[in-house]
Amino acid sequence: MRGRRLRGSRAPGRYPRRVIDALTSLVAPIGQLASADLLTGGQFATTYRVTLTDGTRVVAKTAPTRTDQLLAYEHDLLRAEALVYGLAASRPALRMPRVLLTDFSRTVLPGDAVVVSHLPGVPLADAGFGPSTQDPRTALAERGTGEVLAALHGVTGPAFGYPCGRQEATWAESFTGMIEELLDDAARWSVPVPASDVRAALERHAAVLSDVTTPALVHTDLWAGNLFVDPATGAVVGVIDPERAFWGDPLADLVGIDPMGREPGTPFVLAGYGPLDVDSPSARVRLDLYRLRLCLVMWIEMTPRRFEGDWVEPHRTAVVANLRRALDALARV
């Protein structure tokens, strides 16, 4: 959903002075800025790849200053990202960058900022691999995705919910709160989501959420733009952007890796993961509940973010249709 693209390398004199001054001050504790690349394609933070004078590359990520354009759950997301990276520091199987520094004072920059190590590889979305049934590199990447998810879900938290936000004792309470927050966001921006249908589906199937008893660490957004691979082999070498993570049901990550799909991962993803129930009645219902949630996020965020371009309306149409498919499936069981 929210990948990164390189817009172009610029020496300090090529960006506005205020941008260079801010980046220079931000990275000063670890080195002197030589050049910066703006990475585009993200829909939340502003991200730069910074090269220091000693040749070291780091990634500096800054939170948006327009908090009036954020959904309720998006406040303090960079603090959540830093927290997840901290948890990953002693778990190399998670393949996440190291946090080099954080600045949550909002004095160097208007918003929170995190600087992390630069990962090797390229985003899977840009690797140009063919279908996994034909390209062994794609098959290896998908298997690696499953392995990363299994390792991630082995990390457990103290309660259900957002690491830096609302948490509850049960997954049912937490997930219901997440949905209600989204419906409040929709009302605030007059996004015409079918709120009564959503609430009815959640009430009808609330019992299956009680099947989740352990708050696992869920990335929620591990699509092909946030997964870095070796372009020669397809091996997974890095995972980024866990700022939207929560403590919850591992099945939600199978929706996050393919937001518009109807199947819970591919055979290679599931093989890499290992034993995981995706076929029981409870699992199938929970998967549709998580599709419902993610479609709400993607639909609602379009209004406060003021997305523009030819892609917007087709994207909105696809998201709304996918939400309706999830609601219809939930109504049939």
Score class of each variant (00 low, 15 high):
G3E: 07
R4Y: 14
R7L: 14
S9D: 12
A11I: 06
R14Y: 09
A22T: 15
T24C: 09
V27W: 09
A28H: 06
G31Q: 04
G31S: 07
A34W: 08
Q43E: 13
A45C: 08
A45R: 04
T46L: 09
T47W: 02
T53D: 13
D54L: 02
V59T: 07
L71F: 02
H75E: 01
L83N: 12
L83W: 15
Y85D: 07
G86A: 13
L87V: 07
A88L: 11
A88S: 14
P92D: 10
P92Y: 06
R95W: 02
R95M: 08
M96Y: 06
P97Q: 07
P97S: 07
L101Y: 12
T107Y: 01
L109P: 01
D112M: 12
A113H: 05
V115L: 11
S117P: 03
L124P: 11
A125M: 03
A125V: 06
D126A: 15
G128I: 01
G130K: 09
P131G: 00
T133H: 09
P136K: 01
R137I: 01
R137P: 02
A139F: 04
L140N: 00
R143E: 15
R143Y: 12
E147V: 11
A151L: 04
V155G: 10
T156K: 11
A159P: 05
Q167G: 04
A169Y: 06
W171G: 03
E173D: 15
E173M: 10
T176F: 09
E181H: 09
E181I: 02
L182M: 12
S190T: 14
P192T: 12
A195M: 05
D197L: 13
D197Q: 15
D197T: 09
L202I: 07
L202C: 07
E203R: 08
A206L: 11
A207L: 05
L209H: 08
S210P: 00
D211F: 04
T213R: 15
T213A: 14
D221S: 00
A224C: 03
G225M: 00
N226C: 04
P231D: 05
I240G: 00
F246M: 13
L251S: 06
L254K: 11
L254A: 14
G256F: 00
G261T: 06
R262A: 12
E263G: 11
P264K: 14
F268K: 03
L270R: 15
L276Q: 11
D277C: 12
D277I: 10
P281D: 04
P281L: 01
R284G: 14
R286E: 10
R286P: 08
R291L: 07
L296R: 00
L296K: 00
M302K: 07
R306F: 03
D310H: 01
W311K: 06
E313A: 08
T317I: 03
N322G: 11
R325E: 15
R325H: 15
V333D: 15
